[in-house]
Amino acid sequence: MSVAQSARHDAGGARDGMPSAGKPALWVFMGVVTVLFAQFLHAYIVRMGYADWQRLPTLPTVWLNTALLLLSSAALQWAQVAGRHGRRAGMRAGLFLGGALALAFLAGQLWLWRQLTALDYAIASGPASSFFYLLSGLHGVHLAGGLVAWGMTIRRVGHNGVTADGLLAVELCARYWHFLLALWLVLFGLLFIVPPATILAICSSA
């Protein structure tokens, strides 16, 4: 989180004509996060193979939250496109909307947690719920970190026109959001959609 944010911060002061380092830094960071989740998912899939596996019910809230995150990502994409065309107002609007939708997503996730807990799927109730809370929680933490960077970006896109600096910040935000969306879709698929038997079949054949 603070990584992406500080990357942006420092990138502004690129020295001696050094190419801006924000982009590669974000790529490397996303690589690290990918490895992190890959490890979790590896553990998840191993555990799924045990006989006592029972998956969680797919509440409507899950779909709702997924839609929110999708829209959030789309809004940031819009901001980025607007920025590239020099439309400051559009960029700001997209940025605000994207952040607001991301906050809504986080709230929705918390609500989902409460619903599941109420349905007796508390964190320690079984392996599937333990993994669900763990993975969704960690995903949420990464998004919350993104929101911190988003806050800094809002400040940066200031009031006068589209600066190269501000545009870069928006682009990085958008890229990180798309990444988190993709990550969530993978989690969503593995946690709720794809039948365990299919996952196991794919993984054991590989």
């Binding site: 490895v35 992190l36 392996p127």
Partner: peptide, 25 residues
């Protein structure tokens, strides 16, 4: 380090959950 530490992070978080939240990873 960037590739290996996530693995420790994962095991650490899961162990912490087992200890404090009663999960059974």
């Amino acid at each position: 380090a960037l590739l290996a530490f996530p693995s420790l992070f994962v095991s650490g978080v899961m162990l912490l959950f087992d200890k404090t939240l009663g999960t059974s990873f």
